[in-house]
Design a protein around this nucleic acid. Structure first.
Lengths: 334, 334
DNA sequence: TCGATGCGTCGATGCGCTTCGACGGCCCGG
DNA sequence: CCGGGCCGTCGAAGCGCATCGACGCATCGA
């Protein structure tokens, strides 16, 4: 193994000088710096992560706690993870993956063993039980999602209320008078995931302001459940002409179900989806949608973490504004 | 921070005794062990990961290199990651996530900085350029997928040749005489991903043995591409009654396309899919399928890694046998 | 009864790095 | 021409742990 001492003797300097070249914490003369950098490259030196962590109390590792239930929203989680690991690498950090299953003990373990410099937690519930634990950790934390009581913990999320609002406003602008929300499966509501409620509130409030009739359904992501849900919807609100779908897992089934019923999109029903961009574009019809900016969220979360590591204690709640893109699935009401 | 010295003085023993209690590498009398364990629990002691790594040359971290292209096979990757992290935890290890984007340099970095004890690499291509690098790393490595030249590196994968074979055998058994394979998008073949070719070989060989007419198409995962692909298929092989779909991204689009053409599944065409179990069950019709055992693969990969860390150098290539489950999408030929 | 054996525990050492204080040489102002 | 200050570099200490050799005590056979 190549150590800092090897580099030092190769470059004819002391180990501490090499360290300072690497960290930039003291000024080094250009010629010396150059010699050291050459030696580093030539020997392929990389500091031993453990030794560095021991001496500096910094691991250059970010922990990310993700939900790995299969029922979850897999593509969104995956995109989030992808952008987080990329963003972390841009700050010269690595990403350690933890599952929600490990619970509070897992968080304590990670903190106590100094395995990571900060923790990013996805899938935050409204009454998030991990919040007190996270606060007691004395470690930088970033939440993806907004619990009812964030207690000063920094949060990042899509502004779901505004997203619900935007969907309704779009349909209202097209002259639709009766609309319905097809929300995520009942399980999501039961779990108390905060975004579902926030979206629903934005949806309902704006429908009220605009004077629209607005129903709302929760639907599990299976063809049968979707079929039953649409049955209910058409029975209870036969004049519905606008649909807002807040669950990407349901999209394919819904579009297929509508087609089988002879309901054309957008001629008979306009559909607005809340889903990742590329998903909206690759359904059987290109969907007007509010994007779930998983990539931006991942980046933002890492940024907030890094900022805390730099000593800023800027306990903000950053809600990304929704972006509605009009595609082929919505049109003016008849 | 609670250190081993704190535990030691709390329990009235020396630090080394605490260490031996933890590692079990020397025998400790039951009373002492009990006192130490109590102190550990009471103080909430967890060894400092960096210090442990420095002293023992073991990090208790496994690195996992995943492809994070969006075009990829997201649900399968996610399942794999999920099971790998769970399996790793069962061995008291954590999972560090790396992206394929980092390439060979990333592998060298991880190895040189002793950040992980072993590396698991997904998305192996037939002519995998990373194989020589991985061999030179002097670190335990496990490949998910089988390159043309594994050179002694342990591999885990589904036996795709057998899977292709099983699909054909199932359709042949039902009396289908003319079948077609709808394979992954041309991009996958171009990249030289090894599993696509192996599946195709199994498919073709068994079709030959059984005397079936077998065509094969590569299809990108979009509704348009699927439509065009089915156009070609029906024009060139109008008597096809059995379809093997080896790309889960294409499934929903294909089923929807067939329905729109008035082709009923399974009455007019039988469909066998290669996809994760739950995906097969949640399409518009429950699909006869060969499972992609992402969970088992993740577990197996971690096991092979741990085994190498235990000193075994059992450079095996473990191909999991395919499991075909008959569901509602296949029936006897007319 | 005495030496040999083995079990349970301890102290010291070192893993590779960061960081702090110190020091020598240089430049500048008086 | 001399002293003070600054810049660039070095040496030493210590981060928390695993591990090795050593040691004391009890046990057993001769």
């Amino acid at each position: 193994m190549v150590t800092i001492a090897d580099v030092a003797s190769d470059a004819g300097v002391s180990p501490s000088t090499v360290s300072y070249v690497l960290s930039g914490k003291r000024s080094i003369s250009p010629p010396t710096r150059r010699r050291v950098e050459q030696s580093i490259r030539r020997l392929g030196y990389h500091p031993h992560a453990g030794a560095r962590a021991l001496a500096s109390n910094r691991t250059n590792i970010l922990a990310l706690v993700v939900p790995l239930r299969a029922d979850q929203n897999v593509p969104v989680v995956m995109r989030f993870v992808a952008s987080a690991v990329t963003a972390a690498r841009a700050y010269d950090h690595d990403l350690l993956l933890l599952t929600k299953d490990e619970g509070a003990d897992g968080l304590r373990r990670v903190a106590a063993s100094s395995i990571a410099d900060a923790i990013i937690v996805m899938d935050i519930e409204a009454a998030e039980p991990r919040v007190p634990v996270l606060r007691a950790l004395h470690l930088p934390v970033v939440l993806i999602g907004v619990p009812d009581e964030p207690f000063g913990l920094p949060c990042v999320d899509l502004d779901f209320a505004a997203a619900g609002s935007a969907c309704v406003a779009h349909l209202a602008g097209l002259g639709h008078a009766e609309i319905a929300l097809i929300g995520p499966s009942p399980a999501v509501y039961e779990r108390g995931t905060s975004y579902a409620g926030r979206f629903l509130r934005g949806f309902t409030a704006t429908a009220g302001e605009r004077g629209l009739l607005a129903a709302s359904y929760a639907c599990a992501p299976s063809y049968d459940a979707v079929h039953a849900c649409v049955d209910d919807l058409l029975r209870e609100h036969p004049d519905t002409t606008g649909l807002v779908v807040h669950d990407e897992a349901v999209l394919a089934a819904l579009l297929s179900d509508l087609r089988q019923r002879g309901l054309r999109v957008p001629d008979d029903v306009s559909v607005v989806a809340v889903c990742p961009e590329d998903m909206a574009a690759t359904q059987s019809i290109a969907l007007t949608s509010v994007a779930i900016p998983a990539g931006e969220l991942g980046r933002a979360a890492v940024e907030l973490a890094m900022r805390q590591l730099d000593g800023e204690t800027h306990h903000e709640i950053r809600l990304l504004p929704p972006q509605l893109t009009v595609r082929a699935s919505t049109t003016a009401a008849a």
